[in-house]
Write a protein that binds this DNA or RNA. Sequence first.
DNA 1: ATTCTGACGTGGG
DNA 2: CCCCACGCCAGAA
Length: 111
Amino acid sequence: MEKSDNFFNKVYTIVKLIPYGRVTSYGAIAKFLGAAKSARMVGWAMSASHNNEEIPAHRVVNRNGLLTGKNHFDGTNLMQQLLENEGAIIKENKIQNFSAIFWDPLKELTT
DNA sequence: ATTCTGACGTGGG
DNA sequence: CCCCACGCCAGAA
C-alpha cells in the first residue's frame, strides 16, 4: 500500500539519522524534503511514526525548541526525559541549549 | 463541499 | 525571547 507516502519515508529516514544528543526542527526536515510550507505535514507524519518503527521523535521539536509533541507520547514527560537523558537541558518543555544541540540536515547531512 | 483543527513557520511588535 | 495574526496541507466531522 506504499502508494506515494514517500514523504513519510523521507521523514523517518531523517529522524533516524539524527545523531545521539542532537535535535532538529520540523521545518528543517520539511525544507530538506522540499516542503517547507508543509512543516505541519512533517509533524503529521511523525504521529504516524508512532505506529511505525522506533522513531526518535523526541529528537524532533518545533523551531522554538519547544516539546510541542510531548503530549502525544505515552507518559506525560517521556519526551523530556529522553532528551535530558541525551544531555539536553529542558525547562518547562523548552530546550535551553536548543541552539547548541540543534542538528540541521541541510547543513550537516548535505555538504 | 464546507468548516475546524493540528507534533509548524514566518513576520511584526 | 514572548505574543499575535496569517499562511499551508491534510484529515476528520
